[in-house]
Structure formats: structure tokens, C-alpha cells
């Protein structure tokens, strides 16, 4: 392993088990500023667990994580295990968006977006509001700022959830299957927003089943298999020319269902591709 001093995130030997079940079996990875890393793999291969270890929603049993000023060693006996205060600071710097949008139903759209900037980052109300309104304007939902989340469509809710994370000005964004809970006709609007963030140069890791989208938008693709990174490379190489049988079989399965879905709805990879073409000058 070559020392990579410039990496934004540096992970070494990450292990995570639930009881006797080892879900992550020693993952090492460097992610650089501006990289868009798509993560694919069969259900249960540890993709979500991996993302959740990056902002330590799950505490790994072993391994190291370096990010900005943080340098954690998760080993039980280590003196560099993160404290509760470390975790709050770390998570304020890493945005995460989930499959179920998880907006807070008792707060309006605007209140959802300004809550963490005010209570966690200590921004003044005015500044947080102005910033939130600018972000909501970007996704065309500024006129919904006083609505409650349940009044919004799934696609709108998920875009607000993305904006809520962006409002903390994170250094990295984690996306965990953010379109999986959506009706097919709403997938496109969320993917275009993710694609436009990629264009802005946001560093991100995204778990997705939208293979076409991964190919168009990401700069790097990881294939997770049984708790390990089985393939890692530029999306075109990994997706067009898989080295392992397991990836070949996985792609066959996923693309087959993609084709079936595309027959009914013009979404999926094509939506992401359109978003990029559409926003090109």
C-alpha cells in the first residue's frame, strides 16, 4: 500500500461484524477530492454498512479512517477511537442521504433545511434561511418552503433531503440507494440533481442499482462482494469489461431487470445521461 497523503478520505482495514456475522472483511480505500465513486453489488454485500461506517453511524470493530483533521483507529484498545464529540463534528462535515428520505414530518421544508445549520453549526437564523432558500431555489422548490413534507411527492422529498444535507456545506456526500423507494417516473429528477452535484465537483460515494447512471456520472466504480471490494476502476472498464464471473453474473441480473423497467418507463441511466447532456452548454 503506497502512502497517499493527498486523499480526502483514507480507509484502512475496515472490519464490521454484527455478532458472529462479519459484514465488512477489511476494506481499504482512498477517495480523492472531486471523485464520484459509485458502489454496486448484490443485496447484503455490505454497501450500506460501508457508507454507514464512513460517518460512523455504525462503529467498526477494527480499521482506520482519516478525513480532514480526524484520524480514528477503531480497534477496541486504541486511544484514537472517536468520542461522541468527534462523531458530531465528523458527521457535520459528511452529508448522507438515505433510501427513505427521512424528512422530519413536524417541520416545514424550510425548517428541515435550517435545523442543523442553526443548531449544529451555530449559523444565525437569517444566514441559514437565505442559504436554504438559495438551495431550494436551485431545485425549484422555493415556493414549497412553508409546506410540510407529507404534501410533497417522493421525488420532491428526496431532493429536499439532499438539500438538507447540502445546507451543512459538507466536504463529502454519501448516497445510499436514494432512488430505490421512488416511483419510476420520479427517479429522473433525483438523479439529475445528483448528477449536477457531481458536475459541481462534489466528492461523493453513491450506492446505486442504476447501472447506466453509475456509468455516466461516476469517475470510479467499486463492486462489493461479500464484504470486500472485489473490483475497483473507471466505470467503463469495470462495467463493460468485468474481470470476475461474479460481477458478470451480477450485471446480467441487474441489467436484465433494467431492460424490463426501461420498456415501460424512459428512466434509469438514460435520465442521468439526459441530465448531463441537458446541462452542458
Amino acid at each position: 500500500m503506497t502512502a497517499d497523503r493527498d486523499a480526502l478520505i483514507r480507509i484502512r482495514g475496515l472490519h464490521k461484524s454484527y455478532g458472529p456475522i462479519e459484514v465488512l472483511k477489511g476494506i481499504s480505500l482512498d477517495v480523492h477530492q472531486g471523485e464520484v465513486v459509485s458502489i454496486i453489488g448484490a443485496s447484503g454485500s455490505g454497501k450500506s454498512t460501508f457508507l454507514r461506517c464512513l460517518n460512523v453511524l455504525e462503529m467498526p470493530q477494527a480499521g482506520r479512517l482519516r478525513f480532514e483533521g480526524f484520524d480514528f483507529d477503531f480497534d477496541e484498545n486504541s486511544r484514537h477511537r472517536p468520542t461522541a464529540a468527534d462523531l458530531r463534528l465528523l458527521r457535520a462535515r459528511i452529508g448522507m442521504v438515505f433510501q427513505s428520505y427521512n424528512l422530519w414530518p413536524h417541520m416545514t421544508v424550510l425548517e428541515n433545511v435550517i435545523e442543523a445549520p442553526i443548531r449544529v453549526a451555530g449559523q444565525p437564523l437569517r444566514e441559514a434561511t437565505a442559504n436554504a432558500e438559495a438551495l431550494l431555489a436551485r431545485i425549484g422548490l422555493v415556493d414549497k418552503r412553508h409546506s410540510y413534507p407529507t404534501r410533497l411527492s417522493g421525488g420532491q422529498q428526496q431532493r429536499v433531503a439532499i438539500v438538507r444535507a447540502l445546507a451543512m456545506a459538507p466536504k463529502v456526500m454519501l448516497f445510499d440507494e436514494v432512488t430505490s423507494a421512488l416511483d419510476p417516473e420520479l427517479v429522473g429528477e433525483v438523479l439529475s440533481l445528483v448528477a449536477s452535484l457531481a458536475e459541481d465537483g462534489m466528492t461523493m460515494l453513491l450506492v446505486t442499482h442504476e447501472i447506466g447512471f453509475a456509468r455516466e456520472v461516476s469517475t470510479r466504480t467499486l463492486f462489493f462482494d461479500q464484504g470486500l471490494v472485489a473490483e475497483d476502476g473507471p466505470p467503463r472498464e469495470v462495467l463493460q469489461d468485468p474481470r470476475s464471473d461474479r460481477l458478470r453474473q451480477f450485471l446480467k441480473r441487474v441489467l436484465h431487470t433494467d431492460v424490463r423497467r426501461d420498456a415501460g418507463h424512459a428512466v434509469d441511466g438514460s435520465a442521468g445521461a439526459q441530465a448531463i447532456e441537458g446541462s452542458a452548454p
Binding site: 458530531r88 465528523l90 452529508g95 413536524h106 442543523a116 443548531r119 449544529v120 433531503a161 444535507a165
Partner: peptide, 25 residues
């Protein structure tokens, strides 16, 4: 569970997320 998680992921501590996110609901 997602209500707590999304708050934690934004850097909220236990007492803040109890007070602002969970108890009002």
C-alpha cells in the same frame, strides 16, 4: 429509526435530537 439516523447524520447529539426531532413527534 430513520428519523434519529438522519438527525445523527447531520451531527446532532442525543439530547438535541431527542428535544428537537423525537419528542415533538
Amino acid at each position: 429509526r430513520g428519523q434519529t439516523e438522519s438527525a445523527e447524520a447531520l451531527g446532532m447529539g442525543r439530547s438535541l435530537l431527542m428535544r428537537r426531532i423525537i419528542l415533538p413527534q
